[in-house]
Design a protein around this nucleic acid. Structure first.
Lengths: 230, 230
DNA sequence: ATTTTTTAAATTGTCGACAATATAGTGGGT
DNA sequence: ACCCACTATATTGTCGACAATTTAAAAAAT
């Protein structure tokens, strides 16, 4: 049931497989954020040559999950509050636009599919047992569908191909994300309504508010924490 | 005077140098859009091994200038009208947000520097001899400064590190871009005013209109061309 | 003549080794 | 004891060769 990133190709080459394994390892923190990557060590660990490992590293770099400096090496990206807020700013603008485009270009079939997904989420939430699921994968499901609905390959690449790996990484590592389950669900419903009405302008505004609310929620938590220590 | 892409590092490794040479070659069309890339042939041409060529190809892929399919090979991206319009949509949202952030976070020094640049452009335009320059590099200068002024690393990476290579490629290959010199200059001035006033909301709106106007200008040209053939 | 099979050539993916650069450790000087 | 220069070690960048896969061409069958 847990939906994967829709832009993830089925791995065909061994470098692909190692890339996906490392992707999960980094997102879930098994390879710690900020840690240096030793090519010889990892190559031995995955039982592959250094060349194919470097191929995998290149793809991780494409997702902005690692950073490489010439003649120095690769490091897993750090997870900072500032970095998280930066991502929310980008998401607000890009997903807002994706939502506007989705209202224009989504097929009726795609819209009804999205409604179905939301209904599923609703029943899970009603049972009060899928809350965690909705917060995690369910929320991603919804956002993925909207992004794909834009039918804009650039938007899809940037959001699903790069940014959302980082989003998942932050969610795993910080844990404290999207603690607004019921509100978020309500907002998702309104967004779908706007898309179904083909009201792109409203859809964009609602999506931007939805993401901005999450960002402000985090900013508040930070402010709280800071005021507690003083 | 012609400003380069601000995120382009000074090349240190040979793969870097080949990457930059190929970058220019693709942007300027010396390596034709849509053409297949033969690794052995290019490696011989640049006098390097296939491994380092592949390293360069990976970076080109990161900029979305080439596309790779496993076991099949690399192709230079095609330049289609639809692709160009997609980029404008992304730019409208991202640069709009960058402009909003710039109004919040640009330093006074950065703002005055940007005013200086615009004054330079103004004198060139008045002399009626720098029109071409302003349309090409001058316009990019301005947009680069705004993007950097957002002080948001994610925005900077996506726009300067990836999207703007494609923008330059389309400008070179289609030629018919930003034919709105005087209007564009006027719009740039208003945007800087809004940033200097620290009015993020207005700055975003103006930037979005500025880019949307370019997009509509292109859409109109296409529509014209189509109606002429009928 | 057209389509399918088989075979040969070319291209991409992967490997291990060497060269260039950076890091760590040692010794000498103040 | 501290700082600098030098040496040794380890890591990254680059290379050429081999294996796996795809593409092209040739042969066989209908």
């Amino acid at each position: 049931m847990a939906l994967e990133n829709p832009t993830l190709q089925t791995p065909v080459t061994t470098a692909d497989k190692v890339f996906q394994r490392m992707l999960h390892a980094i997102v879930e923190g098994h390879i710690p954020a900020g840690s240096k990557i030793s090519e010889p060590e990892l190559a031995k660990q995955y039982q592959i040559s250094r060349s194919t490992l470097r191929e995998a590293l290149n793809r991780l770099e494409k997702c902005h999950l690692i950073e490489r400096k010439p003649n120095i090496g690769s490091k897993v990206v750090e997870c900072s509050i500032e970095g998280l807020l930066e991502i929310y700013v980008v998401r607000e603008s890009l997903e807002g636009m994706a939502c506007r485009q989705a209202a224009m270009y989504m097929t009726d079939r795609e819209i009804s599919e999205m409604k179905d997904i939301l209904t599923q989420h609703a029943s899970m939430q009603a049972l009060k047992e899928g809350t965690a699921y909705y917060q995690e994968e369910g929320d991603l499901d919804f956002h993925y569908k909207v992004i794909l609905g834009s039918h804009n390959q650039q938007l899809i690449n940037i959001l699903c191909g790069q940014l959302y790996h980082l989003v998942r990484m932050y969610r795993c590592q910080f844990g404290m994300n999207s603690p607004r389950a019921s509100k978020a669900f309500e907002e998702h419903s309104r967004i779908i309504e706007a898309i179904a009405d083909r009201d792109g302008e409203l859809a964009e505004i609602l999506m931007r508010r939805h993401i901005a609310a999450s960002r402000k929620n985090i900013e508040n938590k930070i402010a709280e924490k800071n005021s507690n220590t003083h």
